[in-house]
Every structure is written in C-alpha cells, then in structure tokens.
Design a binder for these strands. Structure first.
Lengths: 190, 190
DNA sequence: GTGATTTCTTGATTTTTGTCAAGAGCAAAA
DNA sequence: TTTTGCTCTTGACAAAAATCAAGAAATCAC
C-alpha cells in the first residue's frame, strides 16, 4: 500500500480497497525541483497535492515581507483550499524547499472521487473539520502563548523540521522574527 | 422568511423552499439568560445553534485566565465544532453576554437534514471551508499585524460590537491585554 | 437612589519582541 | 580553491506590549 493510500485510509476512513485504488489512480506523480513553485500567488490553484517526498513552504507576500503560513511535509496534503474550491486567484504561493515529489489531482478529477465513492462527501467533511480544528488550536496559541511557548510547543511536535528547513521560515510561521527565534533557540541550549 | 431560513439560503445555497421549511423545522427556539451557559467546558456539545437575538462569548479557561475565542452575534451559528462532530468533551464554554435566543438543533436531528436534502453534504462542506478560510485569515493577522493593526481591522468590520460587549473580551479575542486595548482605543480618539 | 461590582483607564515599570547593523558559518557555484 | 550567497547569530538599541497597582466610570442589585 502506498503512503497516499495509507493516508486516505486513515484520515478519510476509506476501507474498501477497490475504492482506494480508484481514488488513488486519479492522482498523478509530479516532480518539483528545489526552489520551483507548485503554486504562484495570483494564479488559480487547480490541484490538490499529496507530498510523497520533500518539503514545501506556503507563504503570502506582503509589501515588506514574506509570511510563511505553513510548511508541508511528506505524508500530508497541500493546496490553497480557498482557490481550489472557489476558483479564486490565490494569495498563497507554494514553493519547494527541497526536490519534491507530489501526487496531484486536478479539480476536475477530484470531483470524480465523489461520484466513485458515495461516502466521500461525508469523509471529506470530517477531514476538513479536522483541519479547521488544527487552525483553531493555532489561533489559541497566539491568544494565550508567548513566542517562547509557541517555540517550545512547536519544537516538541516537529523536532525533525528544525534540521530540514531554514529556521527563518519556522520563525515566520510561529509569528516571530528570525532574531527572536535565534535567541529563544540559544536559551534552550544553555 | 425567518433569519435562519435567510441564512441557510444564502450561506448554504438551499433554494428550494420546501427543503428550507423541512430543515428549519428541526431547530427549536431556546432562551438563555444573561450569564447563563449554552455550553460548559467539560460537557459534550450536543447542539448547533443559530443566534436569533443577543450575544454569546466562546472562551477557553486556562490556569490563569479566560481566553475569549469568539463572540457570536445575531444571525450566525455557534457551536464547539470539535465536540459536536467528534463527540469529545468540550474545552470551550459558551456563555450569554445578554439575554439571548437561539434556534438549536441536536446532533440527532442535524443528521436528518442530510437525509432530507440530498445536496446537503456538499453545501455543508462549502460552509465549513468558508469557516476554515476565516480562521486562516485570522492566523495571518497574528503573523503579520501588530496589536494596533488587528484592532483597526476588527474595528472597521465590527464597529457595533464595541458598544455592546465588555471590551476586555474583544481585547482577549484579538490577543492583547485590556490595558493595551484601552491605550490603543484612546489613541484613536485623539 | 445607594452601595456594591464590574469594567475601564491611567501611570510607572518591566519584560518581550522588533529593528538595524555587522559579522560568522556554511554550502553551493565558479 | 576561492568566491559568492544565503542563513544564522549577536549586540546595541527602540518599540511594543505586559504587568502591577490605583483609581475612575459605568453598571447592576437592592
């Protein structure tokens, strides 16, 4: 069983292996070189992608700086949900931090999943609710924690990331400057 | 047409008026006195409620303080989605800030909507995605804005709230102390 | 209306975080 | 290897926001 199948099985709860095969067959493997974009702000996001290998950074450019919203790792989905679903132009860019491989499904093909698997809408809904809850949690971290507490919490749950991506991106994602991040990090070593 | 019907029509896209009537009939009107709880942390959230009249505060209690997550106003839904969907105990409390009336549907009755209206799963999914996007936006505000910028942005879009609820709750919801909120507010008057 | 709460404001102070600038460390490219 | 970028760190300083404490203002209960 591929990781994508495994993921869909565990997160969406699809257990019938014929259904699984049908779903997975709609996804196409694509390679993205380090530094290349899976999605550029201003374009339409036409794909939902599963990261098979590598790392991707989702960010929003403002006048002054780039705000990293999320880092997508192996074994998770990535897309600009807003653009993918409502077919608006994307504010978000998604760029590969390393050579990356993704299984992508176009919006057109994605719709077919619902036709193939009757229970899909329900599963999909539950999946999105889980994503919603993660965001709620993240907002709570900004309302109730200091930069250092957010650092600690993220470090505990994402240790591996710290030696895989430029730390400035993690800093941005946690809502602090690279300098603050660096100082907090130093404190932990002492 | 009641506000609830209006809401379901515009946000969920249900246009057939028979369907609308069926859906709305599953909701029961309840009154909540000022200070009373629609949901208490530690309980199961068994209802999805539409605020017909009044104001409700959603908050999470930590050791030191209460963090206001959201203030639900007339014309919107409120629930602890996590608890409602996955039947976990709720971390969130929902308390009435004024005498309040809500149209509530139990989880059991809510499920019937999907059976009554075939398109419901799709509409519901889109609804949740809109909620997801609002949260994304809110996270972005914490990553890219100062307290004052968050104040300004929220004030522009929610002027009415400022003379309807204790300001400390708005402060908490925007991720700042009441003192900081008060000082920013003063600056705006000068 | 009066007293009791609660909410809001203000000042003084401390802590946290951001900004600017310089340099060190490292890795990729020439 | 040398050069060139990029990333990270560090220090000095400035700004933002939190804390503490007191008092004013508004609201609620009687």
């Amino acid at each position: 069983m591929t990781e994508l199948e495994q993921y869909i099985k565990s997160y969406f709860g699809v257990v019938n292996s014929d259904d699984l095969k049908k779903i997975v067959s709609l996804f196409k493997l694509t390679s993205i070189k380090k530094g290349a974009f899976l999605l550029k702000a201003g374009k339409h996001c036409n794909n939902l992608s599963f990261v098979q290998l590598g790392l991707l950074r989702m960010f929003i450019s403002t006048d002054e700086k780039e705000i990293t919203q999320w880092i997508s790792t192996k074994g998770y989905f990535t897309t600009d949900l807003s653009s993918f679903v409502f077919e608006t132009t994307s504010r978000i860019s998604i760029q590969a931090l390393t050579d990356t491989e993704v299984y992508s499904v176009t919006k057109t093909d994605y719709k077919k999943i619902g036709e193939l698997v009757p229970k899909w809408y329900e599963l999909e809904k539950l999946f999105i609710i889980r994503c919603f809850i993660i965001l709620e949690e993240r907002i709570f971290s900004h309302l109730s924690m200091t930069a250092e507490e957010r650092y600690d919490y993220f470090f505990e749950n994402n240790r591996e990331l710290f030696n895989q991506v430029p730390l400035q991106y993690i800093a941005s994602m946690l809502g602090m400057t690279p300098e603050t991040f660096s100082r907090i990090r130093k404190r932990k070593l002492l």
